[in-house]
Design a protein around this nucleic acid. Structure first.
Length: 261
DNA sequence: ATGGTGGTCTTACCA
């Protein structure tokens, strides 16, 4: 079994110990991280290596930043895509043996109608072209990350409160659906799930304690990987720790051995 | 109770 996870860590500098602790306890072979908020020269490469993980990263000062930790060798690393000349470090694609992993930190969008919202929608269109191309190039593709979109009302603690807001607005949901339409599945929905399972809770107003969350972190699998997916869920336990990220890790278990027969 | 918190080399911005 191969376990893959995605976690918006909201500063790897602050969260490094939590990430390593979680990796040791979770048996995750491949972890995609978002919001590392680190320059590449400051990335804690040695700490991951000491835990048995290769690591690649694309970071910037203060904001954004993505990384992949993997027990398998990492090749074919891409952090920029055609048609998107963007200084914001939000994309990191890599090959783990014979699995193509695309790690995304989709823009938040701030508020419907804002400049950042337009940027988000434009960004999602560009990534769609890239994913279409990657699905043609690679037989096994996983697209994971913080999508900053709750796909359906059941992914929202109170759909009425959130109606029309950024993260749930119809154009964002449509853009998400278009990614799915390329030939991906939202692995979480492969399985019957408990109600009100979320991946992000606002730090403010005791959002986590009251389970006022959204499911905005996703693991999308192409057909071949989806047919091998045996479990998909969100581990909310790290959200209970002291000084947590505002996101919890999403994970999948695949009936697959990389490089195996 | 009509706002809250948390991260980043700030005096504001981002989420």
């Amino acid at each position: 079994m191969l376990k893959i996870a995605s976690w918006n860590v909201n500063s790897l500098k602050i969260r490094l110990d939590q990430v390593l602790t979680w990796l040791k306890s979770s048996d995750v072979a491949i972890l995609a991280m978002q919001e590392t908020k680190l320059l590449d020269e400051n990335f804690p490469r040695e700490a991951f290596l000491e835990c048995g993980y290769h690591v690649v990263f694309s970071g910037q000062k203060a904001y954004n930043g993505v990384a992949i930790a993997s027990r398998y060798p990492i090749t074919e690393i891409e952090s920029d895509i055609p048609g998107l000349d963007d200084p914001q470090r939000r994309i990191l694609a890599a090959t783990l043996v014979d699995l193509r992993l695309i790690n995304l930190y989709v823009p938040n969008g701030f508020a419907v109608g804002s400049e950042k919202y337009s940027y988000k929608l434009m960004w999602m269109q560009k990534i769609k072209d890239y994913i279409r191309q990657q699905l043609q190039l690679y037989p096994r593709v996983a697209v994971v990350g913080d999508f900053n979109v709750a796909p359906e009302d059941r992914d929202v603690h109170d759909p009425l409160v959130w109606e029309g807001s950024v993260l749930v607005s119809p154009p964002e949901r449509e853009a998400f659906k278009e990614l799915i339409s390329l030939g991906l599945s939202d692995s979480f929905r492969n399985f019957s799930q408990e109600e009100k399972v979320f991946s992000w809770w606002d730090y403010r107003a005791a959002g986590f304690r009251r389970n006022r969350g959204l499911r905005i972190d996703h693991i999308l699998l192409n057909e071949q990987l989806n047919s091998l997916c045996r479990q998909s869920n969100i581990d909310k336990s790290p959200r209970k720790w002291d000084r947590p990220s505002d996101h919890a890790p999403a994970w999948v278990e695949l009936d697959l051995e990389l490089g195996g027969a």
